[in-house]
Design a protein around this nucleic acid. Sequence first.
RNA 1: GGGCCUGUAGCUCAGUCAGGUAGAGCGUCGGGCUUUUAACCCGAUGGUCGCGGGUUCGAACCCCGUCGGGCCCGCCA
Length: 530
Amino acid sequence: MHWSDVVAQRLAERGKKHIVSTGITPSGEFHIGHLREILTGDMISKAAKKAGLDVEFVFIVDSADPLRKVYSFLDDSYSAYIGHQLKQIPPPNEFGMPDLERFSNGVSYADHFLEPFKEALTQIDVHPRFIDNFDSYANGEFAETARQACNNADKIREIIERVSGRQLADDWFPWNPIDSNGSIDGIRVNGWEDPLVHWTDSEGRLGTSDVTKGEGKLPWRVDWPAKWAWIGVTMEPFGKDHGAAGGSFDTGKEIVELFGVKAPLDLTYEWISLRGKGAMSSSSGNTIGPLEALSLVPPEILRYLVASTKPNKAIEFDTGMGLVNLADEFERTTARDFSLEMEKEGLSRRQIVAIEDAKTAVELSCISEKEEASLVTFRHLALLAQTKSKDEDVWESLGLSESVSQAMTDRLQRMRTWIQSKHFPDELRITILEQPDSDAIGLLDDQNMKVLPDLTASLRTCEWTVKEIQSAISSAASNNEIAPRSVYRALYLCIMGRERGPRLPTILVELDRDSILSLLDACIQAKKES
RNA sequence: GGGCCUGUAGCUCAGUCAGGUAGAGCGUCGGGCUUUUAACCCGAUGGUCGCGGGUUCGAACCCCGUCGGGCCCGCCA
């Protein structure tokens, strides 16, 4: 059974109505790691729906969280905003400086980072109900849980200290009010009169906040279970950082019972790292944004990456050859006839499970109902895009000149972006040698050498068109009674320094004949001398 | 200190939850395809399942131990 169906089955055992929740703090650039959170939630929701459950998928934007520190991409002037809520501070401009003009037009720091992520979600066909945490506090959604938390401050303190093994400060209180400057740092709560907290801020000023009006927020370890309670969350996937023993899930599942609610079903997932570069980290700049990823990778393949990997497995995101292999695998899997495979006699339980998993992974990956049959493989498109600069020539080569779908146009556009990026693997890059490659020359065998002079002569005189070049190659093969394969091998070794390669005549015709001929002559000469 | 994940073919991994004759893709090798989509088709190759115990008629799988790798435990998905 696919992992999403396993979760759906567990949900079915618990009841009929479910809310699957995910959430992210918009403190900086989103990256593809965040995509795993939301895709995991999306896929669980789809599986639950398939199982006949009444399920809603929500995405909580933790815009009430304070700015923790001046991140590397921010200007030092942001230090004035440390401790201020992300929805209440200005967005950075291109230099990392606070952009007060956009702020005055209603764009907050949180919005600045959230908007591109929302765009990426649309592209990968994820459509959750968005819940803005800051607004939820302001609208009084947290009123009940906040009061309960404050009335049970001692119990909550006991849970956190016992479960996490951490010693809380003497003045710890399950409500962080906002001081006279707008910060939740350095403020001391010194009284609680339901629903008001009395406080002293870092400058010694006294104040009062009403917890039912969102004048402040619950600290993270209380905020999370409070959200489960008021939203009615029954399932939440989260990163392994929250899943550690004594982590926020462990304390949350006890705290939430003070609100009279059962903890949601949990699922801890592993992180995504960049191949050879370690974990994603916005601060180190070691990151690929969702939109950048989508400019290279078709959305269904990004979905497939998450769908086909069990949540507890770490994903290494590879923007080079790994991407080609992934795309190839996706295309192969999509093309399989699963019902036919299932009819086969004598399948072991394992084989059946493998077929089911592959089938479900494809279903969860496809964006639209009618995913058009793949007209061209990822690899082939990579070749065409490199050898043909005009889109029309690509379509013609694929026999698509009549009507080209938007999906195909998008794919070609992505391919061109990828080819121009630093991520495109050398292995797929078509390179034409200028000088004979000595290693390649060494690989030329007797048959290759036998046919090369004849071939060179034909190429010197034939018309420089695809058809004539092709015919020159094949007649060189038949005249010398050797397989065409061998002739191609000779050409690849001489021109590209490899034993195999893409369809040659179409590439040759776009190159300068004289330089190719002199390259071939040089190769023959070099081989003879060796 | 507490905890999680991980170790299976040259490579990437599935299979471990529900024990029942070791799997896939890629690679490699051979053959086919009388003008190759780095294609396609057919065949072959390849593993003391990290190691040691235990339970069992039977263990890659369950239990105990051990070694190696990655990671989490203020905040981070």
